[in-house]
Write a protein that binds this DNA or RNA. Structure first.
Lengths: 370, 370
DNA sequence: GTGAAAGCGCTAACAC
DNA sequence: GTGTTAGCGCTTTCAC
């Protein structure tokens, strides 16, 4: 834990190179209009002295911070029970790095933390925020709005007050669910059940909606409610089996749930997929590949979500800097029919005063369970 | 993505309260020696105006940032294949939050990123760094040292140049491994094999060392090499079975490896634990509880590691601020005998000029596999 | 106890 | 093109 040595300043570089501070500043910031000879001298001095600009001083005047906050509610989201969040972070990090922006991570544990986050966001430390909000009643969204910071949400926000323009990125939960259920149906299954996730999370609600899209006629006994955990999956599976002993397929709201269901099916002597076909959601690798049999499931581009969120935010931040149209990433299952499905070409800030979401496509991964 | 409104400044608050900027500053920073009446007036003005100090301006003069960088090499560590890193982050976040410090996440993807991280660290954006370095040849440690930023490492660093004082936190990989192997032996197993992890990571090396501590006589055919993945576990298990068909126990370097081994054992018709007892390491929940049978394994206090790292760093930062001795967290299996095992009471900066590590204890979690 | 004033390191007008 | 100058919002001596 050595002490930080005093860093050279712009002034020092200027003296060394025999120019003014302004010139050094211009060179350092890549401005045009500096004679190449001088520029070279400056660069030399910078190297010699090991000059690194002081960001605090810079932000003070530019009001830019080259930093973005990532806000996530830790206990409520499944942020730390699986690698999901970590992958989104990775995507975000990659994109921010490419834009020379730093990632400030704000994790909230409870209500006490909200004030802190609000203060931080309002304090003008960051240029924007990426907020993960998966609960219907999440206080975070309101909070960041009040802070007045440009924001992109991860996951479809539960509320929709209409008069506010909200930008979000989500994966196609509904379309993915449809694909899974259609796959089960294509297998010839006719008694297809669903184990839903906690419906106060939009992902769970959307997956249930996808199930219903395909099985509009499914009776209520074919739907049980889990909580995205294996334990919840077990309970729900038992319920379903008791209610509908003749079911021949199950679509679980996520892989953890499916793993629990699998265990109960085995315990009850049902063969998978022969007697009952099972499909999950997430393609959470450590689970989906390890179950017996391995899980047929719906894969999302999680890292891609993170990247897209960051990209949207950054693009919004330098709105007006032209340079548009790197179209990889605009996405969407065209057949999705999801009501929140915007023209992806516009991205951030497309429709002022209206919620606009970008939905990333999902893909069905076939393994042995269905 | 609404635009940020202009924030009130100290000046504004001062005007509102009818005092000088200096006084407001004192109140805001909780200094003594301000007449209570004035202080009250200032607090009032702060609330009314919704004043939040501008951190950039503050850092510019104080040279404090109330921010800590967390640096992790993404592809090399298993950071994104399991929830491990996320849990450490959570621990770090909690501790930093309690000290009003922000968490700046620096993820590196490759060599190109090192320069960026070095620049950032050297740029004086943060008060210190928490660095995860698990590879022997990791360039990160040297880099942060050159940046001259107070640092605490996560995981025992692979190198040890002796003349530098390095502070790190690790869990008791060696002691945990010993406990697992002793447990297998206590079960009456005599032919205990080990599937090691990638030995360029100290955790894997330490677990192997722990195995050897207990089974000093184990021949080389009882040790196979995996890579911390299920696939590696499968390959290693096949090898072991071919070499030593009579083995009756396996200690796998982590749970993922154990999951792979389990699959091969089943495939080869060995019953677990009857024919072969299996133990893992990590207690990685989505895996350890889902395997068939569930895994006996060694649990680490991952979140605790994160907290301790942050605590150590922060304590080092305000060295001299007295207030010491909240002794929860100082830890260590006293019987460990690990050479890097310091007197935990001293913590950060205890032995200047020498590597000092704090080792968190592990616990054996018994499930059905052994 | 409180205020006035200097200055942290940088950028952005504005002159030259 | 390049230098000079005036702050950005804050903390911190130093007088009073």
């Amino acid at each position: 834990m050595t002490e930080t040595a005093p860093r050279p300043t712009l002034e020092a570089v200027a003296a060394r190179a025999g120019v003014s501070r302004a010139t050094v500043s211009r060179v350092v910031n890549g401005a045009h209009g500096v004679r190449e000879e001088l520029a070279e001298r400056v660069r030399h001095a910078v190297d010699e002295l090991g000059y690194v600009p002081n960001q605090a001083a810079r932000s003070l005047v530019t009001r830019r911070h080259d930093a973005v906050a990532v806000v996530a509610a830790e206990p409520e989201t499944r942020v730390f029970t699986d690698p999901y969040f970590a992958q989104q972070l990775r995507g975000i990090s990659k994109e921010l790095t490419a834009h020379d922006s730093q990632l400030v991570l704000l994790l909230t544990e409870g209500r006490e933390d909200h004030a802190r986050v609000g203060r931080y966001l309002a304090g003008g430390h960051v240029d924007g925020a990426l907020v993960f909000s998966l609960h219907l009643d999440d206080p975070l969204p309101g909070l960041v709005r009040r802070a007045g910071v440009p924001t992109v949400f991860g996951g479809r926000p539960g509320w929709d007050d209409g008069d506010d323009d909200v930008v979000y990125v989500d994966s196609d939960n509904r379309g993915g669910a449809r694909a899974a259920v259609r796959h089960l149906a294509a297998l010839g299954r006719t008694r297809i059940a669903h184990i839903a996730g906690p419906l106060d999370q939009t992902s769970a609600a959307d997956r249930l909606a996808g199930f219903r899209d395909v099985r509009a006629d499914a009776g209520p006994d074919l739907v049980a409610h889990g909580d995205f955990t294996p334990g919840g999956g077990e309970r729900a599976m038992r319920e379903l089996l008791d209610r509908c002993p003749d079911l021949d397929a199950v679509f679980a709201a996520n892989d953890l749930t499916a793993a629990g269901a699998l265990r109960v099916l085995r315990e009850r002597g049902r063969r998978v997929p022969d007697d009952v076909a099972v499909a999950g959601f997430d393609d959470m690798l450590p689970v989906a590949e390890q179950t017996d049999p391995p899980l047929t499931t719906v894969r999302q581009d999680i890292e891609g979500m993170g990247r897209l969120m960051a990209r949207l935010l950054l693009r919004g931040l330098d709105r007006g800097t032209a340079e548009d149209g790197d179209g990889d990433f605009v996405a969407g299952d065209a057949s999705s029919g999801d009501p929140a499905h915007d023209d992806p070409g516009h991205g951030a800030g497309a429709v002022p005063g209206a919620t606009s979401g970008l939905i990333l496509p999902t893909t069905l991964v076939r393994r042995a369970s269905a």
